[in-house]
Amino acid sequence: MIELKQLTRVFGERTAVDQLNLTVNSGEICALIGTSGCGKSTTLKMINRLIEPTSGTVLINGEDIRDQSPELLRRRIGYAIQGVGLFPHRSVYDNIATVPRLLNWSRQEIDARVRELLELLKMPFETFAHQYPHRLSGGEQQRIGVARALAARPELLLMDEPFGALDPLTRERLQGELKQIQRMLGITVILVTHDMEEAIRLADQVAVMDAGRLLQSGTPQALLRNPREGFVSQLVGGEDRALRLLALRRVDELVQPLDQLSFEAELPTVSSGMSLRDALARHLWYGQNCLRVVDDAGNTLGGISLDAILNAEDQRP
């Protein structure tokens, strides 16, 4: 559990972060969201002491982060940033091995860990390990950035707009991979973003910041249903809120047996893992009231009707 208590940082005249209190549960993803200059990056950097707070404390599993030197603390915390910051003069292998080497792991341990991480990110060792960063695409570089951050098996991963510079398709794919890896490893992630879609897609907890203050925090659903007046409700998007809520729910929540529906032989399909938002888009696209729901293997599970989506009660604010 990560606890930020009365965290404050003043730069000269300006208060960048103002008495911020936030608790992030272990194994969850927390998104710090806000406009540029709202203090979200400063908050993140106070967690690994890249910036020292003016006042307030940060506790990681009850332990004050000031109890150890900044370097030792940072080696325990993964750190991935926008622009990646891979070392251009070091191969992918050496980049990933950075923190393990700082921690004096043995060669065998490092070698095994690099192989494991590249496999985890579906990047073949033979192809990538001895490449240099400039030969990689933006998405590949960001994957290596994440692998490097995860190298020393940190329990906490800090990410500062990690997907900001990527094209939309790559960004979405990497977001999916990140969520998968995070669930698999059970690590805690604190992610800074200004992209509401990203926050909703990834986070278990969304914390909205403005002018150094925490305005509201909660699950994406809670935030979408009951945003506080003003900045938060502006940020979660007036008209889009319904769609964003649908995006949080899956087709299999609303599957009905096919015989309850006005059945047509050749219904277009949706997969059960799709979001309701995508399913709605398919209904509109095919001009159908009902779609056939299939699982990954292609077996029909039932159907989903337009009415069911429209009546999904708790989507309304």
Binding site: P70, R74, I81, G83, G85, L102
Partner: peptide, 17 residues
Amino acid sequence: NPAVIDAARGMGMNARQ
């Protein structure tokens, strides 16, 4: 590149490293 230096600090390299 400032991102590279930021990353180096963030990973726990000290000034000499």
